[in-house]
Write a protein that binds this DNA or RNA. Structure first.
Lengths: 135, 135
DNA sequence: TTAGCACTTGGAGTTAAGTCCAAGTCAAGT
DNA sequence: ACTTGACTTGGACTTAACTCCAAGTGCTAA
């Protein structure tokens, strides 16, 4: 692992250069170092953080929470407890999200099954097809 | 289960009246019937569909896909295959989402564990705390 | 040295999905 | 009759998170 340019990071993590610059503007990233000509480069440390950000963003953790965490990281040990709390809160959010997702997946699977077996064809009127599956 | 007014539906499914009217405008709902005074009421059939919509929206299925499905439902049997396809596609999306979510949850759990055990305190510099856990 | 390309900046524009508002109507209660 | 409260409409506004643009700089290769 070595320093990468903005486009390299962009390709590695499937995130646009514009987004990387945006993340820096909003302080989701610390000041990104520049090479002699003024171009950004991303050392390992930064890449790891970006990797984490991309992962959590992909799961819907709001940018704002990540900024809060980033700010606290920079503030040092005084923020240890607050950081742990933030992580716990986000974990709880994601676990709820997972629960909702399981429900939706079951719903879709059930519905698809109805199509597969042709049961849906008996379909009465327009939306009747949408009875709730025991709750 | 019986006909409900807009506020009743709103309370039952934790969705604002404005959102219900919005859903109607964008054809995510069929024409909602009106009582003599012009107020909307929601019969069982509609409630089931709303319940489904709320569930899927909560898992991130885009409004547009739900509109497509709703339109196809109204179009009748000619759209059976297309409807099944749409459901399969959305199912695949949600399954991928679930995968991402699992990853994020593991990440957070691991990180929280580091805080719990005090391992994070040894923290080198700012973002070093973010090394990637074996991949 | 000139063309081309990757990068820089500040700022404007986009997209999805609501969310809110002002002005008006209607039925019920006092 | 008058106030209250729930509803109606069309349209404007908000929010989150990008995403794009124009104008400019600076290295690289022919």
């Amino acid at each position: 692992m070595a320093d990468l340019t903005i486009t390299e990071v962009s390709e590695k993590y499937h995130i646009k250069p514009d987004t990387l610059r945006y993340y820096e503007r909003i302080k989701l990233l610390p000041q990104v170092p520049r090479s002699k000509n003024g171009n950004r480069y991303y050392p390992d440390e930064l890449q790891s953080w970006i990797e984490m950000v991309v992962c959590l963003r992909h799961s819907g953790v709001p940018v704002e929470k990540l900024i809060d965490y980033a700010q606290m990281l920079q503030a040092g040990d005084a923020t240890l407890d607050a950081r742990e709390n933030l992580l716990r809160e986000q974990l709880a959010e994601l676990e709820e999200k997972r629960h909702d997702l399981e429900r939706s997946i079951s719903r879709l699977q059930h519905k698809i099954h109805l199509y597969e077996t042709g049961e849906i064809k008996q379909g009465k009127s327009y939306f009747s097809d949408y009875g709730i599956i025991d709750d």
